[in-house]
Simulated assay, not measured.
Amino acid sequence: MKAVLSACLLSLWASLAHAQAVPAFYDVSGVAPDDVLNVRAAPGVGNSIVAKLDAGATYIEVVGFDEKREWARINVEEQSGWVAARFLTRRADQPDDELPRPLVCTGTEPFWSLEVARTASATLDRMDEDPVSVSTLNPVTSENRTDRYAIFGQSQTQEVFTFMFQRDACTDGMSDRFYGMSVDLFVTEESGVTYLTGCCNLSR
Protein backbone atom coordinates (compact mmCIF):
# COMPACT_ATOMS: atom_id res chain seq x y z
CA MET A 1 0.00 0.00 0.00
CA LYS A 2 2.82 2.40 0.90
CA ALA A 3 4.54 1.62 -2.38
CA VAL A 4 1.37 2.40 -4.31
CA LEU A 5 0.86 5.66 -2.40
CA SER A 6 4.47 6.69 -2.97
CA ALA A 7 4.15 5.95 -6.66
CA CYS A 8 0.98 8.03 -6.86
CA LEU A 9 2.57 10.97 -5.05
CA LEU A 10 5.64 10.78 -7.27
CA SER A 11 3.43 10.71 -10.35
CA LEU A 12 1.43 13.70 -9.09
CA TRP A 13 4.60 15.67 -8.35
CA ALA A 14 6.01 14.89 -11.79
CA SER A 15 2.74 15.92 -13.43
CA LEU A 16 2.67 19.25 -11.59
CA ALA A 17 6.29 20.01 -12.42
CA HIS A 18 5.76 18.90 -16.01
CA ALA A 19 2.69 21.13 -16.40
CA GLN A 20 4.68 24.22 -15.46
CA ALA A 21 7.78 23.83 -17.63
CA VAL A 22 9.62 26.99 -18.60
CA PRO A 23 10.49 28.93 -20.61
CA ALA A 24 6.91 29.73 -21.58
CA PHE A 25 4.78 32.73 -22.52
CA TYR A 26 2.39 34.24 -19.98
CA ASP A 27 -0.07 37.15 -19.98
CA VAL A 28 -0.62 39.60 -17.14
CA SER A 29 -4.00 38.91 -15.49
CA GLY A 30 -5.89 40.03 -12.40
CA VAL A 31 -4.42 43.55 -12.49
CA ALA A 32 -6.84 46.50 -12.59
CA PRO A 33 -6.86 48.32 -15.96
CA ASP A 34 -5.53 51.51 -14.35
CA ASP A 35 -2.82 49.69 -12.39
CA VAL A 36 0.53 48.06 -13.21
CA LEU A 37 2.39 44.89 -12.25
CA ASN A 38 5.64 45.69 -10.50
CA VAL A 39 8.83 43.94 -11.58
CA ARG A 40 11.16 43.61 -8.59
CA ALA A 41 14.89 43.03 -8.26
CA ALA A 42 14.31 39.83 -6.25
CA PRO A 43 11.34 37.71 -5.12
CA GLY A 44 9.30 39.51 -2.46
CA VAL A 45 7.35 42.75 -2.10
CA GLY A 46 10.09 44.29 0.00
CA ASN A 47 12.54 44.41 -2.89
CA SER A 48 13.09 47.40 -5.15
CA ILE A 49 11.01 47.95 -8.27
CA VAL A 50 13.09 47.79 -11.45
CA ALA A 51 10.30 48.01 -14.06
CA LYS A 52 6.53 47.90 -14.48
CA LEU A 53 4.23 45.90 -16.76
CA ASP A 54 0.93 47.22 -18.08
CA ALA A 55 -2.24 45.46 -16.96
CA GLY A 56 -2.78 44.25 -20.53
CA ALA A 57 0.76 43.04 -21.20
CA THR A 58 0.94 39.77 -23.15
CA TYR A 59 3.59 37.27 -24.25
CA ILE A 60 5.74 37.73 -21.16
CA GLU A 61 8.47 35.08 -21.27
CA VAL A 62 8.85 33.42 -17.88
CA VAL A 63 12.28 31.80 -17.54
CA GLY A 64 12.07 30.49 -13.97
CA PHE A 65 10.31 30.46 -10.60
CA ASP A 66 11.39 30.75 -6.98
CA GLU A 67 11.28 27.62 -4.80
CA LYS A 68 7.63 28.14 -3.80
CA ARG A 69 6.64 29.12 -7.34
CA GLU A 70 5.13 32.31 -5.95
CA TRP A 71 7.42 34.56 -7.99
CA ALA A 72 8.27 34.30 -11.67
CA ARG A 73 11.51 35.46 -13.26
CA ILE A 74 11.28 37.49 -16.46
CA ASN A 75 13.51 39.79 -18.51
CA VAL A 76 12.76 43.46 -19.02
CA GLU A 77 15.05 45.01 -21.60
CA GLU A 78 18.58 44.04 -20.54
CA GLN A 79 17.87 43.07 -16.96
CA SER A 80 16.20 40.25 -15.06
CA GLY A 81 13.38 40.81 -12.59
CA TRP A 82 10.63 39.07 -10.63
CA VAL A 83 6.84 39.41 -10.68
CA ALA A 84 4.17 37.85 -8.48
CA ALA A 85 3.15 34.64 -10.26
CA ARG A 86 -0.50 34.97 -9.21
CA PHE A 87 -0.83 37.83 -11.68
CA LEU A 88 0.31 35.75 -14.64
CA THR A 89 -1.68 33.31 -16.78
CA ARG A 90 0.12 30.80 -18.97
CA ARG A 91 -0.83 31.00 -22.65
CA ALA A 92 -2.38 27.92 -24.19
CA ASP A 93 -0.85 25.58 -26.78
CA GLN A 94 2.64 25.37 -25.28
CA PRO A 95 3.47 21.65 -24.97
CA ASP A 96 5.93 20.91 -22.18
CA ASP A 97 7.36 17.78 -23.79
CA GLU A 98 8.27 19.40 -27.12
CA LEU A 99 10.86 21.94 -28.20
CA PRO A 100 9.19 25.37 -28.24
CA ARG A 101 9.56 27.13 -31.58
CA PRO A 102 10.39 29.64 -32.91
CA LEU A 103 13.54 30.34 -30.90
CA VAL A 104 16.34 32.89 -31.01
CA CYS A 105 19.64 31.69 -29.54
CA THR A 106 22.88 33.63 -29.05
CA GLY A 107 26.41 32.95 -27.94
CA THR A 108 29.45 35.07 -27.12
CA GLU A 109 33.18 34.97 -27.78
CA PRO A 110 32.88 34.32 -30.62
CA PHE A 111 29.52 36.01 -31.16
CA TRP A 112 26.91 34.06 -33.06
CA SER A 113 23.14 33.77 -33.34
CA LEU A 114 20.72 31.03 -34.33
CA GLU A 115 17.12 31.46 -35.41
CA VAL A 116 15.05 28.28 -35.23
CA ALA A 117 11.89 28.67 -37.29
CA ARG A 118 8.48 27.24 -36.50
CA THR A 119 8.90 25.00 -39.55
CA ALA A 120 11.81 22.81 -40.67
CA SER A 121 14.51 25.44 -41.04
CA ALA A 122 17.08 27.44 -39.10
CA THR A 123 19.58 30.21 -39.80
CA LEU A 124 23.04 30.39 -38.23
CA ASP A 125 24.89 33.71 -38.26
CA ARG A 126 28.53 33.64 -37.13
CA MET A 127 30.73 36.73 -36.78
CA ASP A 128 32.49 37.76 -40.01
CA GLU A 129 30.69 35.04 -41.99
CA ASP A 130 27.62 35.00 -44.20
CA PRO A 131 24.44 33.62 -42.59
CA VAL A 132 23.90 29.92 -43.29
CA SER A 133 20.43 28.51 -44.00
CA VAL A 134 19.91 25.04 -42.57
CA SER A 135 17.24 22.56 -43.60
CA THR A 136 16.26 20.64 -40.47
CA LEU A 137 14.43 17.52 -39.47
CA ASN A 138 11.69 17.69 -36.85
CA PRO A 139 12.95 18.06 -33.27
CA VAL A 140 13.49 14.84 -31.31
CA THR A 141 12.61 14.69 -27.60
CA SER A 142 14.79 12.58 -25.33
CA GLU A 143 13.07 9.29 -24.43
CA ASN A 144 13.95 9.65 -20.75
CA ARG A 145 14.15 13.47 -20.33
CA THR A 146 11.25 15.46 -21.74
CA ASP A 147 13.17 18.69 -21.12
CA ARG A 148 15.88 17.86 -23.66
CA TYR A 149 15.65 18.00 -27.45
CA ALA A 150 17.76 17.62 -30.56
CA ILE A 151 17.52 18.95 -34.11
CA PHE A 152 19.60 17.63 -37.01
CA GLY A 153 20.13 19.56 -40.21
CA GLN A 154 22.26 20.24 -43.25
CA SER A 155 23.16 23.29 -45.33
CA GLN A 156 23.37 23.54 -49.11
CA THR A 157 27.16 23.35 -48.82
CA GLN A 158 26.84 19.98 -47.06
CA GLU A 159 27.72 21.19 -43.58
CA VAL A 160 26.05 18.99 -40.96
CA PHE A 161 24.43 20.58 -37.91
CA THR A 162 23.37 19.15 -34.56
CA PHE A 163 21.48 21.38 -32.13
CA MET A 164 21.02 20.10 -28.56
CA PHE A 165 18.54 22.07 -26.44
CA GLN A 166 17.77 21.84 -22.73
CA ARG A 167 15.26 23.62 -20.51
CA ASP A 168 17.47 25.02 -17.76
CA ALA A 169 18.84 28.28 -16.37
CA CYS A 170 21.31 29.94 -18.71
CA THR A 171 23.29 33.21 -18.67
CA ASP A 172 25.19 34.81 -21.52
CA GLY A 173 28.01 36.18 -19.37
CA MET A 174 27.62 39.61 -20.96
CA SER A 175 24.39 41.00 -19.46
CA ASP A 176 22.09 40.73 -16.45
CA ARG A 177 19.53 38.73 -18.40
CA PHE A 178 18.59 35.16 -17.56
CA TYR A 179 17.34 32.55 -20.00
CA GLY A 180 15.23 29.43 -19.60
CA MET A 181 16.88 27.34 -22.29
CA SER A 182 20.46 26.48 -23.29
CA VAL A 183 21.80 25.13 -26.57
CA ASP A 184 24.85 23.16 -27.64
CA LEU A 185 25.62 23.52 -31.33
CA PHE A 186 27.89 21.24 -33.36
CA VAL A 187 28.87 22.17 -36.91
CA THR A 188 30.63 19.45 -38.92
CA GLU A 189 32.65 20.77 -41.86
CA GLU A 190 35.55 19.51 -43.97
CA SER A 191 37.95 21.25 -41.61
CA GLY A 192 36.49 19.50 -38.56
CA VAL A 193 33.84 20.02 -35.89
CA THR A 194 33.02 23.37 -34.29
CA TYR A 195 31.32 23.33 -30.89
CA LEU A 196 29.36 26.40 -29.72
CA THR A 197 27.22 26.99 -26.63
CA GLY A 198 24.59 29.62 -25.94
CA CYS A 199 21.23 30.62 -24.48
CA CYS A 200 17.81 30.86 -26.09
CA ASN A 201 14.74 33.08 -25.96
CA LEU A 202 11.26 32.19 -27.08
CA SER A 203 10.19 34.09 -30.18
CA ARG A 204 6.83 34.74 -31.87
Results as ranks from 00 to 15, higher is better:
Ala92Cys: 04
Trp112His: 12
Glu67Met: 08
Ala55His: 05
Ile74Thr: 02
Pro139Thr: 04
Thr106Cys: 12
Glu98Thr: 11
Phe65Gln: 08
Glu67Ala: 13
Met127Ala: 14
Gln166Glu: 15
Val116Gly: 02
Leu16Asp: 05
Phe163Ile: 08
Cys8Ser: 11
Thr188Pro: 00
Thr171Gln: 09
Leu99Cys: 01
Ala14Thr: 02
Val160Cys: 03
Glu129Phe: 12
Ala55Pro: 00
Phe111Asp: 15
Asn38Asp: 09
Cys199Thr: 08
Asp125Phe: 09
Ala57Lys: 12
Met174Glu: 11
Val134Lys: 06
Ile74Ser: 01
Val160Phe: 09
Arg40Gln: 00
Val193Thr: 11
Gly192Asn: 03
Gly107Arg: 06
Ser15Met: 10
Arg86Gln: 14
Cys199Lys: 05
Gln158Asp: 12
Ser203His: 15
Ser175Cys: 08
Thr119Tyr: 11
His18Val: 02
Tyr149Pro: 04
Gly64Ile: 01
Ser15Cys: 12
Trp13Asn: 03
Ile49Arg: 07
Ser142Thr: 11
Arg204Met: 14
Glu78Phe: 13
Val36Asn: 03
Ala72Arg: 07
Val22Arg: 08
Ala72Ile: 05
Val36Phe: 13
Glu115Gly: 14
Arg91Gln: 14
Tyr59Asp: 15
Gly153Glu: 06
Gly64Asp: 05
Gln156Trp: 05
Phe165Glu: 02
Val62Ile: 04
Pro95Tyr: 01
Ala85Cys: 04
Pro95Val: 02
Gln20Lys: 13
Trp82Met: 03
Gly64Trp: 03
Pro102Asn: 06
Ala55Gly: 00
Ser142His: 11
Pro95Arg: 01
Cys170Asp: 04
Leu103Asp: 03
Lys68Ile: 09
Asp125Leu: 12
Glu78His: 13
Gly46Thr: 05
Arg177Pro: 04
Tyr59Asn: 13
Ala85Gln: 07
Val63Tyr: 07
Asp34Lys: 11
Tyr179Ser: 03
Arg126Leu: 14
Leu202Met: 06
Glu98Gln: 15
Pro110Ala: 06
Trp71Glu: 08
Val183Met: 15
Phe65Tyr: 15
Leu37Phe: 03
Val4Asn: 07
Ala122Met: 11
Ala72Glu: 07
Phe161Val: 10
Val31Asp: 00
Ala85Gly: 03
Gly198Lys: 13
Ala84Ser: 08
Val45His: 03
Phe65Trp: 14
Asn144His: 09
Gln20Ser: 14
Ser6His: 09
Leu37Tyr: 02
Asp35Met: 08
Leu10Thr: 07
Ala19Ser: 14
Val140Pro: 04
Phe25Ile: 00
Arg40Ser: 00
Phe25Ala: 01
Arg73Cys: 10
Thr171Gly: 10
Ser121Tyr: 13
Ile151Leu: 14
Ile49Ser: 03
Leu53Met: 10
Val4Ser: 11
Thr157Ser: 14
Ile60Leu: 06
Asp130Ile: 10
Leu202Ser: 02
Cys199Leu: 06
Arg145Trp: 07
Tyr26Gly: 02
Glu190Gln: 09
Val134Trp: 07
Glu78Cys: 14
Tyr179Arg: 04
Glu98Asn: 10
Lys2Ala: 12
Asp176Ser: 12
Ser121His: 12
Leu196Cys: 02
Thr119Gly: 03
Val83Arg: 05
Arg40Met: 00
Gly173Phe: 10
Val4Gly: 05
Glu143Ser: 14
Pro33Asp: 07
Phe65Thr: 11
His18Leu: 05
Phe25Met: 00
Asp54Trp: 08
